[in-house]
Amino acid sequence: MKFKSLLVGLGLVAGISIAQAEEPFKVGFVYVGPIGDHGWSYEHNRGREELQSFFGDKIETTFVENVPEGADAQRVITQLAKAGNDLIFTTSFGFMNPTLKVSKRFKKTTFEHATGYKRSKNMGTYTLRTYEGRYVSGVAAGMLTKTNTIGYIASFPIPEVFRDINAVYMGAKTVNPDIDIKIVWVNTWYDPGKETDAANALIDQGVDIMLQHTDSPAPLITAQKRGIKGIGQASDMSHFAPDAHIFSIRDNWFPYYLKTTQAVMDGTYKPQDFWGGFKDDMLNVSSINTNLPIEVRAKIDETYNAIRSGELKPFTGPIKDNSGKLVIEANHTLTDKELSQVNWYIEGIKAKMPN
């Protein structure tokens, strides 16, 4: 019996190979919204599903959705670490400090935090150059607006959101010197009711092109109902508003999830600050409306290709903020570290900074 137990332990009984007997590599994900938000969390979960499909039974993935930023996040991340996950991805800015705290307790677990800037020996950070997509969005909005007024539904006053608002305005300004941008802050990532109210408030101010940093399709649906145009956020939202939809900027997290998971499995992982964008195929212009004027479609393609190739780098000086202060010197392009610290509106944006 002892000999049989030994064989069982080695995976050599009943045709079971040692490889088959090994525990799968476990990967956990933490989402700030529901996977059905059709935006940010939806696309993170889509990346998880593609990761699971790629590795099959070699890995086991789990996720927790609708996790509030703060103490609840730390509790959830701790539970995933205690459950034996080898790698944990936390996917919202407000998860940064909770992830860092848990990483110091579970040093054999690898942690990856999306959109943050704090790292440790077993914790890296990753984000998307969403400002690239916003710049293209601004170009399209600037060409298509009839009121010269575009709107932006902003989530939280963090560098990522300031970067993207500025990028929209910069892109629009290149094709429309008379452009104005109205901004409504909703202090949420996902709340269809608040997003609808914000969209209506913007339209009442003369906005005829809607952009958003929130995750539900509610703003685009509102745009459709009220006869204006809009751009989808994070995922392809064309089916929610086929007439209003100009295009969507889609996030594609799978390439990074695959690369990172493989590195941890191989023992080659090193924490870093990773930024993915057009050139990495982690950001895509999706479902461009076939009804767009030819010149608008051509300009979208031209701008996308210029950014992807590196010919166009949006945050290149000289650039002043809206108080007149020089924030980017002439011929200087913001580094990733500097991009992560943007907390100003670009010159020409008339809005006041949120408290």
Rank of each mutant, 00 (worst) to 15 (best):
S5N: 14
S5D: 15
L6F: 13
L6I: 13
V8S: 13
G11R: 04
L12D: 06
V13A: 13
G15Y: 04
I18V: 13
E22D: 10
K26L: 01
V32P: 08
I35A: 09
I35V: 14
D37L: 08
H38C: 13
G39L: 08
S41Y: 07
N45Q: 10
E50G: 07
L51D: 00
Q52P: 04
G56D: 03
I59N: 02
T62D: 14
F63W: 07
P68D: 01
E69V: 09
A71L: 12
A71V: 14
D72F: 12
I77Y: 09
T78H: 07
Q79T: 14
A81R: 00
L87I: 01
F89C: 05
S92H: 11
P98H: 03
V102K: 10
S103D: 09
K104S: 11
K107D: 04
K108S: 13
E112A: 05
N122S: 01
G124H: 08
G133R: 05
G133T: 04
T145Y: 03
K146I: 03
I150V: 05
I150G: 04
I153V: 12
I153D: 01
A154F: 01
I158T: 00
Y169D: 09
G171E: 06
N176R: 05
I179F: 06
D180M: 12
V184R: 05
W189M: 02
T196W: 02
A201T: 14
G206P: 11
M210C: 06
L211D: 00
T214S: 04
S216C: 02
P217W: 05
I221Q: 13
T222I: 04
R226L: 12
A234D: 15
A234V: 12
S238L: 03
D243A: 12
A244M: 07
A244Y: 00
R250P: 08
D251N: 15
W253L: 03
F254L: 04
P255M: 04
T261L: 03
Q262A: 10
A263I: 03
V264M: 09
K270Y: 02
K270L: 11
D273Y: 12
F274M: 15
G276A: 07
K279S: 13
K279T: 08
K279C: 01
D281I: 02
D281F: 09
L283R: 03
V285I: 14
V285H: 05
N289F: 03
V296H: 10
D301E: 14
T303I: 09
Y304T: 09
N305D: 15
A306R: 13
E311F: 07
F315K: 08
T316F: 08
P318G: 11
S323C: 10
L326E: 15
I328S: 08
E329C: 09
L334W: 01
L339R: 04
G348M: 01
I349C: 06
A351N: 12
P354C: 02
